[in-house]
């Protein structure tokens, strides 16, 4: 065991991707990322999590000192790993950005199914916004349109930069944006102009949805999967007339942040990690949802079982932990 490097594990289970980061226990976070993995969640968080852990095991050179989970699947992943911290992605993204640059004042984060704006002053989150009931302005939409235009998503941004006159696309709603885009194609606009128009409309949408009434001060970080898109980078910089900084590990910032919070929490409390170990990937997990009938509240409960042993449950209003499924 002695030859293995001590690391902290951060897992960000998002709607589109699940990201894994191993953070060197001895170094500061910004340059401490020793290993990272970006996997598509594909609607199967349990399987994806196992796949990521298998990759860590295969490397065989890490000793995990502690673990944290974030993202929309944080509770599930947290229960599976018995993570030391389970925290929301806003806090995690802010922590990672601050470790890269303690001065950061604005974070633009665009992920698969939501986008966030985080405002910081003096290293503290003072305000945030998340897109509400709409998917316009998220990575999934770009992904879908790239698929429809038959352009690989990683070439999408570069193509947008080739445009000399981006077309104006109605970006208020993804459905209308799509029909508007098709209309512009039928009119014979060049693909690069349409792609550029799409990026521009996403930027407009983001700023009018999330940034209304907020002061975006530099330094501005742009992170999340969509930050890879150079077209989006350019349009943000042009619209805000401010430089946009892309952190080195922009795609896994949530995972970095949560690994770091796990480390700080364990170190400050002097506690031993509860992390279950990589063996967990050979276990079989079963989850089951049902409506609890014990009282009129009708809570929707989700239970998770590891190798036939009850692990955790969510959704009960009364805080009960345990299995209450009559059939189960």
């Amino acid at each position: 065991m002695s030859g293995r490097k001590k690391v902290y594990l951060g897992v960000d289970v998002g709607s589109v991707s699940t990201n894994f980061v191993l953070l060197d226990a001895g170094r500061t976070a910004s340059d401490g990322v020793v290993w990272k993995k970006y996997l598509r969640t594909n609607g199967a968080p349990v399987e994806t999590l196992k796949k990521g852990l298998a990759a860590i095991e295969q490397e065989g050179k890490w000793e995990i000192q502690g673990a944290g989970t974030t993202g929309s699947g944080r509770a599930l992943a947290g229960a599976m790993l018995n993570a030391d911290v389970v925290k929301n992605e806003i806090t995690a993204h802010a922590a990672a950005a601050l470790s890269e640059n303690p001065e950061v004042a604005t974070i633009i984060e665009i992920g698969g199914q939501d986008s966030k704006l985080i405002i910081l002053r003096d290293g503290v989150v003072v305000d945030f916004a998340m897109n509400t009931v709409c998917a316009a302005g998220t990575g999934s939409f770009l992904d879908q349109q790239a698929g429809r235009l038959n352009i690989p998503i990683d070439r999408f941004g570069a193509l947008a930069l080739q445009s000399t006159s981006p077309v104006r696309i109605a970006g208020r709603c993804t459905v209308f944006a799509e029909s508007d885009m098709i209309h512009k194609q039928q009119l014979g606009h060049r693909t690069c102009d349409i792609v550029a128009g799409l990026c521009a409309s996403m930027v407009r949408n983001y700023l009018s949805n999330l940034a209304k009434g907020k002061e975006l001060k530099p330094p501005i970080f742009f992170q999340g999967g969509v930050a890879a898109n150079v077209g989006m980078q350019r349009f943000f910089a042009d619209t805000l007339r401010l430089p946009i900084l892309i952190p080195r590990h922009f795609d896994v910032m949530g995972a970095i942040g949560i690994a770091q919070i796990a480390r700080e929490t364990l170190e400050s409390q002097g506690k031993q990690s509860g992390f279950v170990g990589l063996d967990v990937l050979h276990s079989e997990f079963v989850n089951e949802g049902y409506v609890c009938q014990l009282c009129p509240n009708q809570c929707e409960i989700v239970e998770i079982w590891r190798d036939g042993v009850f692990l955790a449950s969510w959704g009960s209003r009364c805080g009960r932990q345990g299995q209450y499924n009559a059939s189960g």
């Binding site: 925290k87 929301n88 806003i90 806090t91 503290v124 989150v125 003072v126 945030f128």
Partner: peptide
């Protein structure tokens, strides 16, 4: 519910830090 809970948690974190 997930988005709702995330906002609440982030808000509470923010207040705590302040």
């Amino acid at each position: 519910e997930t988005g709702f809970q995330t906002r609440l948690e982030a808000f509470v974190d923010l207040l705590q830090r302040r």
